[in-house]
Nucleic acid binder design. Structure first.
Lengths: 251, 251
DNA sequence: CGCTCCCTTGACTCGACTCAAAGCAGGTGG
DNA sequence: CCACCTGCTTTGAGTCGAGTCAAGGGAGCG
């Protein structure tokens, strides 16, 4: 398993050797997808979750009887996707590759094994899930209470920030991996209005657009417009590190 | 611990004696609140989560720099609240008692202990959290893509359905524990427009209102309007029940 | 070459927000 | 016990942000 894949589990603790072994055992198989290919589909039974190792994928859902689509998140390498549906008979979300992508397939049975063999890891995963929940809450608050301009600004900043995690010395330019239609689906705005809003940002000299390349000219102002809250995670909290480093159970 | 409190943990499995003991040990203390009292506040450090045993509380967050408020959920007895913020330095959500309420206080340290001593329970809690995530996703899709009429209908149906879980032979009437302002905050609509929308539903003879008492006259039509998806949970999935019934760790 | 998707723009419409104001509890303190 | 206040509900009039409809121009692909 590559370096990036471990990221999610190292957010709160530094895993031990034994824990690393459990982690490596999670992934059963690797799969590759091409742009626009569907990885898992809303309504299908759920037996796997996926660890994204390369490329970008979206998780989304049909809304209002299929009249439109809500994109919940643009996932980047290191993300664990498909988790929300594991307790449902039919998947709630559809996973689509936005660029070419590779994923590690994790059967949910093995997740159970992790809860037995590596409780500290399990707790870590649990915490990571709670963070996702907070992000969803922030997303919901934004869609419910902010203007189109604010939402588009927030989206651009969000993607930029996420890309910077990989590549800390990246400047203020990046290649946006989504079309305007997809930006619309993520923010709950009409594609046409997304276009107008981007134009407005361009006219105000806050961003420039060349094809799929975005440059943020005025990050400060963009941040001010976007108005989304800063979330500071805890790191290595005592109540977590004090947990026995590896559960017993079947070795 | 009362019967209702166990509900969340019996959704997917039937707990054993040992597991029940672990569950009972979770709650450190009981606290009572009066209408409108704040249980935990956005921005404060997080050291407890709460098991609601009586009454209703909301979880919410300020949106758009405090210009408005997003209510995420109306919680009923049996719900575990405050979880999303456990991985953050400062709580993301505010918990407010909507009616008089009692909660059991669970220190997050004890949660960790549960992951060690009762992995199957931990996994159950994990699954329950994933379901919450799906509900948030549904909520987001609704706020982003449906009309005021649809959102209000969905809200009414949702509360009614939830109340029916306790009291299966309840008719189509119930006392709505939230004001129109709160309905507005939950749906991302203006309070004034909530009022107009309710009036519209009344005029169409779909509901009646007398003070806080709502009667759903035409559940079928309401469901049709609301257009939210049916979510069917798995129950006692093999990959869960096959987990050892109780972990070892420190007894 | 002719698709099909995406982006772009303009003109028009409408659902939901804003502002304003009045009536109606329920609770508090004098 | 009453007067007052604060917060909730209800209504109307006017505005505006965002959606809808329509159409032309690239860019990529089979």
């Amino acid at each position: 398993m590559e370096h990036v894949a471990l990221q999610r589990f190292c957010e709160f603790i530094t895993p031990t050797e034994t824990e690393l072994r459990v982690l490596r055992d999670l992934v059963a198989e690797r799969r590759d997808y091409r742009r626009k290919e569907v990885i898992a589909s809303q309504g299908q039974p759920v037996s796997n979750i996926f660890l994204l190792t390369q490329g970008c994928i979206t998780s989304s859902m049909e809304a209002n009887h299929g009249r439109s689509r809500q994109i919940f998140k643009l996932h980047f390498p290191g993300d664990l996707v498909g988790l929300p549906s594991i307790a449902l008979r039919e998947a709630a979300e559809t996973l689509v590759a936005v660029t070419a992508a590779s994923v590690g397939v994790i059967p949910i049975t093995r997740l159970g094994a992790m809860f037995e063999r590596a409780p500290r890891l399990a707790f870590t995963l649990f915490l990571s899930t709670q963070q996702e929940r907070v992000m969803l809450m922030d997303h919901l608050a934004a869609v419910g209470h902010t203007s189109a301009l604010q939402r588009i600004s927030a989206l651009l900043l969000h993607v930029h920030r996420r890309l910077k995690l990989f590549d800390p010395d990246r400047a203020h330019s990046f290649e946006l991996p989504m079309s305007q239609k997809e930006m619309a689906e993520a923010t709950g705005i009409t594609p046409i209005h997304v276009n107008r809003t981007l134009r407005e940002l361009k006219l105000a000299k806050t961003i420039t657009l060349e094809g799929k390349w975005v440059t943020l000219l005025d990050v400060e102002r963009l941040t001010e417009i976007a108005a989304f809250p800063e979330r500071v995670p805890v790191w290595e909290p005592l109540w977590l590190t004090n947990l026995a480093e590896c559960g017993v159970g079947a070795s």
